[in-house]
Amino acid sequence: MTYKLISNGKTLKGETTTEAVDAATAEKVFKQYANDNGVDGEWTYDDATKTFTVTE
């Protein structure tokens, strides 16, 4: 399945996607992506749209 990340960081804003077997796997990928880009904030997940959002 395709999962989307919306980043509302102070230094990184935008969207990216990943293919993953489940939401937990996608979350690990996205949290590593955010960490690699210096984004640390509040996370939410919408199962209906398969979208994670991180806001700093």
Rank of each mutant, 00 (worst) to 15 (best):
M1R: 12
M1K: 12
T2S: 07
T2C: 14
T2F: 08
Y3L: 02
Y3M: 02
Y3K: 04
Y3A: 03
Y3T: 03
Y3W: 05
Y3V: 04
K4P: 03
K4E: 04
L5S: 02
L5E: 03
I6Q: 06
I6Y: 06
I6V: 11
I6E: 05
I6T: 05
I6R: 06
I6L: 08
S7A: 14
S7E: 04
S7V: 15
N8V: 14
G9D: 04
G9T: 15
G9S: 12
K10T: 13
K10C: 15
K10G: 11
T11W: 13
L12T: 07
L12K: 08
K13I: 12
K13Q: 12
G14I: 15
G14R: 12
G14M: 14
E15L: 14
E15N: 07
E15P: 09
E15M: 14
E15C: 15
E15G: 07
E15S: 09
T16W: 15
T16G: 04
T16R: 11
T16A: 10
T16E: 05
T17Q: 10
T17Y: 14
T18P: 00
E19H: 13
E19Q: 14
E19I: 15
A20V: 04
A20H: 02
A20C: 09
V21M: 13
D22F: 02
D22G: 03
D22S: 07
D22K: 02
D22H: 03
D22Y: 02
A23E: 05
A24R: 11
A24D: 09
A24F: 09
A24I: 11
T25E: 14
T25W: 07
T25A: 13
T25Q: 11
T25L: 06
T25S: 12
A26H: 00
A26T: 00
A26I: 02
A26R: 00
E27Y: 15
E27D: 04
E27K: 07
E27P: 00
K28N: 07
K28S: 09
K28F: 08
K28E: 09
K28L: 10
V29A: 08
V29H: 13
V29G: 03
F30Y: 01
K31H: 09
K31D: 01
Q32N: 07
Q32D: 07
Y33Q: 03
Y33N: 02
Y33H: 05
A34R: 01
A34E: 02
N35I: 15
N35Q: 14
N35M: 15
N35A: 15
N35T: 13
D36E: 13
D36N: 09
D36M: 11
D36P: 01
N37M: 14
N37V: 09
G38F: 06
G38T: 03
G38E: 06
V39Y: 07
V39C: 06
V39M: 12
D40R: 13
D40C: 14
D40F: 15
G41N: 02
E42C: 12
E42W: 11
W43I: 03
W43Y: 01
T44N: 07
T44G: 06
T44Y: 10
Y45Q: 00
Y45A: 00
Y45F: 06
Y45S: 00
D46M: 03
D46H: 06
D47H: 10
D47I: 08
A48M: 10
A48W: 07
A48C: 09
T49R: 06
T49L: 06
K50M: 10
K50E: 02
K50G: 05
T51H: 02
T51E: 03
T51L: 03
T51W: 01
T51M: 03
F52G: 00
F52A: 01
F52V: 00
F52N: 01
T53D: 01
T53V: 07
T53Y: 13
T53C: 07
V54R: 00
V54Y: 04
V54W: 03
V54E: 01
T55D: 07
T55P: 00
T55W: 12
T55C: 08
E56L: 09
E56I: 12
E56H: 07
E56N: 07
E56S: 09
